[in-house]
Design a binder for these strands. Structure first.
Lengths: 213, 213
DNA sequence: ACCTGAACACCGTTCAAGT
DNA sequence: ACCTGAACACCGTTCAAGT
């Protein structure tokens, strides 16, 4: 971004917000697996070490970038019907997980340092919608745990499937003696590519099927 | 493992199997996040570059090590009742995911290069058990997808929760104005530590509840 | 207070050179 | 055929030094 070196100590106009925003741009280009402090620094025309003035370490930066993406999910209006709202929230997180590979596996289980984090708001929105449908709090916790696992598990699998330098499913499965040894697995893996969305939707609907519409 | 340098070209007795076995020992000590070619090489008293004579790259090594761990899951006998068998298989994979942090997120979505991989056998065992309970193949695919997501999602979350240098859940949640803003999320995160196993078991039972015992 | 430069301890991978 | 040594292009992080 910048090539002319600045004198030592000269201000570069960095701030926590600008660092996180640059991190978002890098994550958008390279995915969360390629999000490094060095790339963020180059994006800002700055030295890697200088980022530590605005961010504690890489983990905190990654969490903050992910939080900013989750926050975007919550900006557009949500359905008023609780079951529809749950579905919409889950599908939005699913889409975000596919758009930003590696994001969900990085933040799941992390409890953000700051109050008011988008992650906390998101979970509260789903949990309260579950209770709104008439579920007990215990049932809500159970369903929420399943839904989050569903989104994260699907997202992680999608990342590895999209990995480059891997032979196609069809090529690979040819090795397996024409589906005679593992017929069910073979047909499972050969599902049409476009079923990614309908499959996920079907899983969510299965989990939510008892809830009153 | 070895300190006295060997002359160039002198055989070190490496083989694909010994490299994978050493990889397993390193993964056992450091977890899959800390499994590096360099550590495997030092474990064998050998130079990192020499590993490339027996393994194509790091990804292939990781897949092979994970495959060896999954294979262990399948050695002990399984229940004859199909529903019990499914439960047992899922719980074994769940335990393996907690024992070897980072393993499941590394292999999910990867289709192994060799036929007869433990991963394929595992999925075929679950899918056929699902069909045995009377489910259609389509239902079996749906339930299998949910179960795998459940295991992977829970495993990934556990890895991040166990990460060092993180304040405890209770400490963190104190920031959130005494549970007034996010009461449901707060109580969800404050579940007792020991609920890790019973929670997961409850999720699996929820998914399998329609299946005849 | 904020940034640089250099260093440290790591990575995966390649490749000519040796035996 | 198999291993070494050295290199290359990366990492996160620390810290004295500058302004």
């Amino acid at each position: 971004m910048r090539n002319t070196p600045r004198g030592r100590g000269t201000s570069a106009g960095l701030s926590r917000e600008s660092v996180i925003a640059a991190g978002g741009r890098v994550a958008e280009r390279e995915g969360f697996a390629g999000l490094s402090l060095r790339l963020v620094a180059y994006e800002l025309g700055v030295t890697p070490a200088s980022l530590y003035n605005h961010v504690a370490n890489k983990e905190e930066l990654v969490d903050a970038v992910a939080d900013s993406f989750i926050r975007e999910l919550l900006e557009s209006p949500l359905p008023t019907a609780p079951k529809e709202r749950i579905r919409e929230l889950v599908m939005r997180l699913h889409r975000a997980g596919l758009t930003h590979p590696g994001m969900l596996s990085n933040i799941i289980g992390h409890i953000p340092e700051q109050p008011g984090s988008a992650q906390m708001i998101y979970s509260e929105l789903i949990l309260s919608a579950l209770v709104e449908t008439g579920a007990s709090e215990q049932q809500a916790h159970l369903l929420y745990g399943i839904l989050v696992s569903l989104v994260v598990g699907t997202s992680v699998a999608a990342v590895n499937l999209r990995a480059p330098s891997r032979r196609s499913v069809d090529d690979r499965l040819g090795d397996y003696i024409a589906d005679s040894c593992i017929p069910l697995t073979s047909r499972y893996l050969k599902r049409p590519e476009g079923s990614q969305w309908s499959d996920f939707r079907a899983r969510v609907d299965f989990v939510l099927r008892d809830l009153t519409e």
